[in-house]
Amino acid sequence: MRLKGKVAVISGGARGMGAAEAKLFAAEGCNVIIGDILKEESLTTASEIERNGGKCTFLELDVRKEKDWGNVVSYAIREYGKIDILVNNAGLTSDGHIENLSLDEWNHIMDVNVTGVFLGCKYVLPSMTSAKTGSIINISSQLGFVGSNGSNPAYQASKGAVRILTKNVAVRYASSNVRCNSVHPGPVDTPMTETARSDNEFLTSLIDKIPMGRIGRPEEVAWAVLYLASDESSYVTGIELLVDGGWVAQ
């Protein structure tokens, strides 16, 4: 069991990639805390994990709210005395281009995708630095690397910000043995991409851009996150792990 005895907080763990990570982590012996705004779906995921013999708790977490992060951290410390792993997975996007994107929508995406990651790091780091160990995994995107005609500029900017925020945390806290890496999934079969994928023409054009010729599965991202969460990656920090079927390599 590759995460035996470890404690992980996964934001956006109710569904999609976050739920896949929660299930995989629990199967590898980890105590998982799902933080999400989606109560019902989180409880479904948590109870599925518990039914399979894993350990999983749901806590309400709007990643934009300091108070929520404070609650999550104090729960983890009270219950387990530590947090070994933080997966900043919560994120969103919408339709939009520079010319029609409202400032409110820009700010909303930035708040969740970037400020949410900042707050997660800020609240979890003190316990990790005092424990002299920790692994933070920030979910960015292949669109944090390269531009795409169809994607929301706020989403792209937010994922680029996550990429470099990760390196700041990695360099600053390496001496405390806290690692911080970003994962960059390509298009993945999740609720976030559901609307986009339902447009057949768009889906075909998307798949045409992927050398492997297919969309990724949430589990395929979860395996990469597991690698970065576990001690197998103890010499890995500040890196960008692309899980994109070759999108950025071409």
């Binding site: 050398p211 395929e220 920090t237 692309l242």
Partner: peptide, 20 residues
Amino acid sequence: DESSYITGSELVIDGGWTAY
């Protein structure tokens, strides 16, 4: 097979050397 969707990637294992 855990990396079945990973190709053309660079896996850097350098203690943070190139992030710095």
